[in-house]
Amino acid sequence: MTGARHITALRALWVTAILAFLYVPIMSVVLASMANTRYMRFPHKVWTLDAYREAIASFTTWQIHAISFWIAVYVVIFAVLLGTLGAVAFARFDWRGRSVFQRLLVLPIFFPQPVLGLALLLSLNAVGLAPSWKTAIVAHLVWIVPIVTLVISIRFFGYDPAQEEAARDLGANRWQVIREVTLPALWPGIFSGALFAFLLSWSNLPLSVYTSGPDTPLPVWLFSRTATNYSPLVPSVAVIGTLISALLVVSLALLLITARRLRAPRG
């Protein structure tokens, strides 16, 4: 059938177009990192990996990665903790003022991040805290906790709270109910929430610019070096940073799959 073949061809074209749209910009960063000029211009006269050698040898490269990494790790820990508790309050229980809480909670997401960053810097000044990577954690949390809360809350839709009563009826104490019923039901939400938290913090620029002080996270460094002192070092560091976060995501996913295999009942 020619009609079916047309549709197959169109679908292939469509998929290719989407992938090109998503990946061509990323590829261009990789290409830019292999130049030896201070100007972004294609095609290169000389193809070289000098920028990568320089990046790997430079202390700054590892410092900015470490700062971003630790900010993201703390953000994940606090965001998951607060987000889980928030989700329970947000979606599981009905209480006076819940709808107000639900609206107030999502408000920071709609706030433009540069404005939020400035507001946070002003508040930090007001309470006398010097900006550093620690204050950047707080700033990221203000924006990321609502998102993580929403992501985890989604798990409560379609969740039958009678499961908790059933567990209790079958002899589980309060802690066992949480461990055996509530947390396993929330776990996929907690996992995606943690992933979101890490990636959103890892790549955040507008909040970090205002609140990280003398400590420079990866995105801030990339931004300022692109703006003022560009060299192929910038795209090469960007590629390294992307690889690191991709590696983290992939290894986490592998870990999860392995854990699921091990836990699966035999027979």
Binding site: D160, E165, A166, R168, A185
Partner: peptide, 25 residues
């Protein structure tokens, strides 16, 4: 006595099966 201390068991209207577990579990 709370539910977990009573020698009784309930079959719920929604059944309240643990969705993330197998029949055996």
């Amino acid at each position: 006595h709370p539910a977990n201390k009573r020698p009784t068991a309930m079959v719920f209207q929604s059944l309240a099966l643990f969705d993330h577990r197998t029949v055996g579990q």
